[in-house]
């Protein structure tokens, strides 16, 4: 029976776990009643809405995902210190630039993650996404070398995301 029925019964395992954690945090207690109610909701909501979700995500390499998360958190702290120095410093010296980052990623969810990561890290904000031509338009607050920054973003954030989510799909 089993793998097919199982898959039907629990269509999105990660979403269910996330929702259970969210429920426990929101009720701010870990009593038995909250576990039961949260567990029921975490099963029922993905089960009854599974027709709306396009595809379920598969994390191919959980350890790499954890390392990527830590890297991004560290980068957020560093980025803020850098941006703080740039904001306090002389504003005539800033060299803003728009950059086009060609995309290798294919899935919507992964592209969303990449765009959000870029927005949260060093002096760059994602402004626009061109799906047909396949690039992200990114604005940098202070960019010395446009090419080097694009290469840095591609190797630092895009490649790990591609490995984590998409290598099993191809």
């Amino acid at each position: 029976m089993n793998s097919v029925t199982y898959k039907k019964l629990f269509p999105h395992k990660l979403l269910s776990i996330f929702m259970l954690g969210l429920w426990l945090a929101m009720s701010n207690s870990i009593g038995l009643g909250q576990w039961l109610l949260g567990g029921f909701l975490a099963w029922a909501i993905p089960y009854f809405t599974q027709a709306f979700w396009p595809q379920s995500m598969v994390i191919a390499k959980p350890w790499l995902a954890l390392r990527f998360l830590l890297l991004v958190l560290w980068d957020i702290v560093i980025a803020n210190a850098q941006v703080a120095v740039l904001i306090m410093g002389p504003r005539q010296k800033l060299q803003p630039a728009f950059m086009r980052i060609p995309l290798e990623l294919k899935q919507d969810f992964t592209i969303t993650l990449l765009a959000n990561t870029i927005s949260l890290t060093p002096g760059t904000v994602t402004v626009d996404l061109q799906m047909e031509e396949g690039y992200l338009l990114v604005h940098g607050l202070h960019v010395d070398d446009v090419e080097a920054t694009i290469a840095d973003i591609k190797s630092r954030y895009e490649r790990p995301l591609k490995e984590i989510f998409e290598c099993s799909k191809t």
């Binding site: 803020n80 941006v83 904001i87 904000v125």
Partner: peptide, 10 residues
């Protein structure tokens, strides 16, 4: 576009 950087990150 430069002002966009302050609120989103800091």
């Amino acid at each position: 576009f430069m002002r966009l950087h302050g609120p989103t990150k800091a």
